[in-house]
Simulated assay, not measured.
Amino acid sequence: MLILPSRRQVLTGLGAAVGVVGATGVYAFDIEPLHRLIVTRYAPDLPGWKDGPALRIAVLADFHVCEPFMPFDRVAEIVETTNALKPDLILMLGDYPAGEVAWRKLPLAEFAKLADTLRAPLGTYSILGNHDWWDDEHTQVSLGGTPQVRRLLEARGIPVLQNDALRLTKDGKPFWIAGLGDQEPFKGRMEGMDDLPGTLAKLTDEAPTILMAHEPHIFPQVPDRVALTLSGHTHGGQVRLFGRSPAIRRIAGHDLSYGHCTIGGRHLIVSGGFGVSRLPVRFGVPPEIVMVELGRSTPGPAAA
């Protein structure tokens, strides 16, 4: 015998469903993007790092400073948490200004001032992302100018590696950090600013190399010469369900949306970053500081 639910039971079920949807919305629009901050740790066993030093790298990506989604007190919290992790090296992967979702844009000079308080023995280095070009309001970048945020960071002593490479040493062991120009076309250009062959041509010896590339799209083209590629840009899709980011397309048949990815023994780590773009929502991919530990005796990723 079929027993139909009563009117009270139907209304109770609908009310519970509405409550779940409402709570999920509050979490995705407020709690996760604005109040959560995690540290995600990776210790990959890199074939190209056998002669490299033990190294702890803090990776910071996609700030998108603006109100209300990335105010300066939030940036200060990220800086303080990063410093407390005591990394050897800090790498910033671009997209410092806000995108489309900003209710109010914030002055990048103040962001650069906060970035100047990052502390690591080997220094802080950066690259530019697509929004550093697209959302620049002070320079005719399409005419060959320099984005404002690059000038501000470099004035604070934070080098911006634009298709360039720098040789560093720790514990007597050398390694390279290389920074790729942004890959996205902008303001009428048919191509991005990236030059992978030209960047790698600046490596003058066989010391292991870390490549900073804002977008992970380039990774299928990165040669074995690079021990590790670090990227941001995707925000992990901002919504990540059951280990997948439905908003991010596959690249050359590979899911490069988030986390530790490998192709043919080559390694990529994609940070979920901090900010938001297009939609002011995060669900299943909270803002994160990525900590990469190289040269450890027992490798393996872990999240905290």
Rank of each mutant, 00 (worst) to 15 (best):
Y96S: 05
Y96G: 03
P97R: 08
G99W: 02
V101S: 10
A102G: 06
W103L: 15
R104G: 06
L106A: 10
L108V: 10
A109V: 11
E110Q: 14
F111C: 12
A112C: 13
A112L: 11
K113L: 11
L114F: 11
T117W: 00
T117M: 00
L118N: 04
R119P: 00
R119L: 01
P121L: 03
G123V: 09
Y125S: 03
S126H: 09
G129F: 05
H131P: 12
D132M: 11
D132E: 14
D132W: 10
W133I: 01
W133T: 02
W133E: 02
W134A: 09
D135T: 02
D135W: 09
D135H: 12
T139E: 15
L143W: 07
G145D: 03
T146A: 05
T146P: 03
P147V: 12
P147G: 10
V149P: 01
V149K: 02
V149G: 02
R151M: 11
L152Y: 10
L152W: 09
A155D: 15
R156P: 06
R156G: 11
G157H: 09
I158L: 11
I158T: 09
P159G: 09
V160S: 03
Q162I: 07
D164W: 05
A165Y: 02
L166E: 05
R167C: 05
R167L: 11
R167N: 04
R167Y: 10
K170G: 09
K170Q: 14
D171V: 00
K173Y: 01
F175P: 02
F175M: 11
F175W: 06
I177L: 10
I177M: 08
A178H: 06
L180V: 11
L180R: 03
G181S: 01
G181M: 01
E184I: 11
P185E: 01
F186T: 04
K187D: 04
K187Y: 01
E191L: 12
E191S: 14
D194A: 14
D195H: 09
L196Y: 09
P197N: 13
G198C: 08
T199D: 08
T199P: 03
T199G: 03
L200P: 00
L200M: 07
A201F: 01
K202D: 06
K202M: 08
L203E: 09
T204S: 13
T204N: 11
A207E: 04
A207G: 05
T209K: 05
A213S: 15
H214F: 04
H214Q: 08
P216S: 01
P216H: 04
F219I: 00
F219R: 01
Q221Y: 13
V222D: 05
P223N: 15
D224A: 15
R225P: 00
V226M: 08
V226G: 05
A227Y: 00
S231L: 06
H235N: 03
H235M: 04
H235E: 08
G236A: 04
V239D: 05
V239I: 15
R240N: 13
L241N: 00
F242N: 07
F242Y: 11
R244P: 02
R244H: 14
